[in-house]
């Protein structure tokens, strides 16, 4: 076994439930490499919702609360709120995060609460058998858009930026080195970080949307379509060609929510001790 796996996986939970060729195992490896480099495994608290990517954290030997479909982010907020020293990371998918859990994403980003959302985007509802997702391209034929998808795609990174996330990156499973670096940056970022990972799903996306169920084909598809471009003014052109901009898009410092809570609590307690107005 890979030494990282030896060190950090729950061996009694194996084998993975991921299909052959799935990108989720690569994300497990990149994340564990980042955690190992930082030596922060004891500080980790993970949450997840429902979907293939929600199982990523379950195989890691760390504290994890896997909740309902779409609800990983509020669960993470509750965990973070009770002990801000935790490094809270949510593993979620495009359906989990952008459809059923979309509202939670907006408000967690707006609060700039110190947590990391890792959204694995395979452009489809894979676990339920290949239905259209908010991330599915227009025209795609899926199990629930047999005559072609009429709805435009929702761009998770743009949503996160607009909602106030203070760190936003997008990479793919074909960018393991960049992914490890970005994970480390996010784990140390004091604020809300959003990482989108374009990932291959040969079984659903490959077969129904891209025309091949071969893992190699699907991995190559990511390599061919993910273009590094960190300047948002150039995204439209890349996207118009059917390609996907990747890179570290944003990192800014803003007041972090839990730190502000601590300051507020201190302030009101001092005011109360003096008997003054809060």
């Amino acid at each position: 076994m890979n030494p990282l796996g030896e060190k950090y996986l729950r061996k009694d939970f194996l084998p993975f439930l991921f299909c052959p060729g799935c990108g989720d195992g690569m994300i497990v490896q990149a994340f564990l490499q980042a955690v190992d480099d930082l030596g922060c495994v004891d500080d980790l608290a993970l949450t997840a919702g429902i979907g293939c990517s929600a199982w990523i954290g379950v195989y890691m030997h760390v504290d994890i609360l896997k909740v309902l479909h779409g609800r990983a982010i509020p669960a993470a907020i509750g965990i973070k709120a009770t002990n801000p020293s935790r490094k809270v990371v949510t593993f979620t998918g495009d359906g989990d995060c952008l459809a059923i859990g979309g509202n939670h994403l907006l408000h967690a980003a707006r609060r700039n609460i110190d947590m990391t959302v890792v959204m694995v985007n395979n452009q489809i509802y894979a676990m339920t058998g290949g239905q259209v997702a908010p991330s599915t391209a227009v025209g795609s034929k899926t199990q629930t858009t047999p005559y072609g998808n009429l709805e435009r795609q929702l761009n998770g990174c743009k949503v996160a930026i607009a909602a106030g996330a203070t760190m936003v990156s997008r990479w793919s499973t074909a960018h393991p080195k960049q992914l490890i670096k970005t994970f480390k940056k996010a784990l140390n970022h004091k604020g809300f970080s959003f990482i989108e990972i374009m990932s291959q799903c040969p079984v659903q996306t490959g077969r129904y949307l891209l025309g091949s169920g071969s893992p190699q084909f699907n991995f190559q598809w990511l390599k061919d379509h993910c273009m590094k471009e960190e300047d948002p003014s150039k995204w439209a052109e890349i996207e118009a060609q059917g390609n996907i901009p990747v890179g570290d898009f944003l990192q800014v410092e803003q007041p972090e929510f839990m730190a502000e809570v601590a300051r507020m609590n201190q302030r009101v307690k001092e005011a109360q001790a003096k008997g003054g107005d809060r």
Partner: peptide, 25 residues
């Protein structure tokens, strides 16, 4: 005043899920 946290969440779904998270916290 007692070092607790009261969060007005985005909806009642998030409110109770956050409570469950805090409980395991």
């Amino acid at each position: 005043l007692v070092d607790g946290l009261c969060l007005q969440m985005e909806d009642e779904i998030a409110a109770l899920v956050a409570v469950v998270g805090a409980s395991w916290g």
